[in-house]
């Protein structure tokens, strides 16, 4: 049985539907990400779980109990807000022990548990600092410790890493994931950063304008997106427009190639997606001839922008320690049949 359950959850602001008919089952201990572009209703969903917004219709249940109408201060969930929302007039340890105080924990125990929580997020020596005296990353950890110290059944994270610089963000991803697995707390993370979702989650819920677009595990989502929106939003991809011409064959700009699926009828207009790293780029005159327009060195890999009869394509190739292609070079792109994903063109 699922631990946290949404049934037909809907939230309207006036006529505007922010979240539409959302149903989701989350297992105990699972790390779920709500991923989607700005304004797609991620925060709204999270706030309904937190009890800070009342759903227009639908039901939320936690461990079999309906909590749709439960006020936020009786849900006992741990929340890390996008702005961290630390109490500026309290020190780190006062912030963390606030939730324990509200639960009537005696002062000595409170202090001990709060300091342990701060140690756990490696802030042992910053306990008596005010939020203003701490860096963004340190504040983020205080917020995390404050949410976790109350031993919540569910941890809700609203873009907790978006205010950190790139390097710190990557470190925190890993730390957060390890911490979550150690504690085993069921976690819902809201993010618009696909890398974050891919690297941390057990399952990802991709949202688009209030609807669920796809639910899948990270690898599955990346390799087998079920629509163009997901394939474009999760990871980089090249989207080509074409038509099914024959069994197992599509044509793009008059160029035909083999594909795997037989599900599409002849004559269907389709979108074709191929990830930049699925290409093999070489000089051996096999596959599609392309001209390099731009070449960017990224350390671990090269990113090329190339033009061909198929159109403009992005290509990534691993850095093997030798010089890559440069602007103006001619090269050939080859790929496996399974690297292509096909979507029937949305009827729009």
């Amino acid at each position: 049985m699922s631990f946290l359950k949404f049934e037909s959850l809907t939230k309207k602001f006036g006529d505007f539907v922010a979240v539409r008919d959302m149903s989701l089952d989350i297992e105990k201990g699972e790390f779920i990400s709500l991923l989607g572009p700005s304004g797609c209703g991620k925060t709204t969903t999270l706030q309904m779980v937190a009890g800070l917004l009342t759903p227009t219709s639908g039901k939320i249940s936690l461990d079999g109990k309906d909590i749709t109408e439960t006020p936020p201060n009786e849900r006992g969930l741990g929340i890390v807000f996008q702005t961290y929302a630390l109490f500026p007039h309290m020190t780190a340890i006062e912030n963390v022990s606030f939730g324990l105080e509200m639960r009537g924990v005696a002062k000595a125990e409170r202090i001990e548990r709060a300091s342990n929580a701060l140690e756990q997020v490696k802030l042992g020596q910053f306990m008596n600092r005010y939020p203003k005296q701490m860096s963004g990353g340190q504040r983020q950890r205080v917020a995390l410790a404050r949410a976790l110290v109350i031993g919540p059944p569910v941890l809700l994270l609203d873009e907790p890493l978006s205010n950190l610089d790139a390097k710190l963000r990557e470190e925190m991803r890993l730390e957060l994931r390890i911490l979550q697995q150690d504690i085993g707390v069921t976690t819902v993370l809201v993010t618009h950063d696909q890398e974050e979702a891919l690297s941390m989650s057990d399952r990802i819920v991709v949202m688009k304008q209030g609807d669920i677009s796809q639910i899948a595990a990270p690898l599955e989502l990346y390799e087998r997106p079920t629509n163009t929106f997901v394939s474009d939003f999760v990871g980089k991809t090249n989207l080509l427009k074409g038509e099914v011409t024959d069994n197992n064959q599509v044509s793009v700009n008059g160029i035909k190639f083999e594909v795997d699926t037989k599900m599409h009828k002849q004559g269907t207009r389709i979108d074709l997606s191929i990830r930049p790293e699925k290409f093999r780029m070489s000089n051996d005159k096999k596959g599609q001839e392309v001209r390099v327009d731009a070449s960017i060195f990224l350390g671990a890999s090269w990113l090329y922008s190339v033009s061909s009869d198929l159109g403009q394509l992005f290509v990534t190739q691993p850095n093997t320690g030798t010089a890559g292609y440069s602007k103006g070079d001619i090269a050939w792109l080859d790929w496996q049949k399974g690297a292509l994903t096909l979507f029937e063109e949305a009827a729009s």
Binding site: A50, G51, L52, P71, P72, N73, E74, R75, G76, L77, G78, I79, F81, Q82, T83, A85, L86, F87, P88, H89, F98, G99, M102, R103, R146, I150
Partner: peptide, 25 residues
């Protein structure tokens, strides 16, 4: 305003949020 929401989510009543979180700020 999220600091008030944070207070609520940590189990404080509305009155306590007002007294311990809003007023001091």
């Amino acid at each position: 305003p999220q600091s008030e929401d944070a207070g609520l989510s940590l189990g404080a009543s509305k009155m306590t949020v007002l007294r311990r979180i809003t007023l001091p700020q």
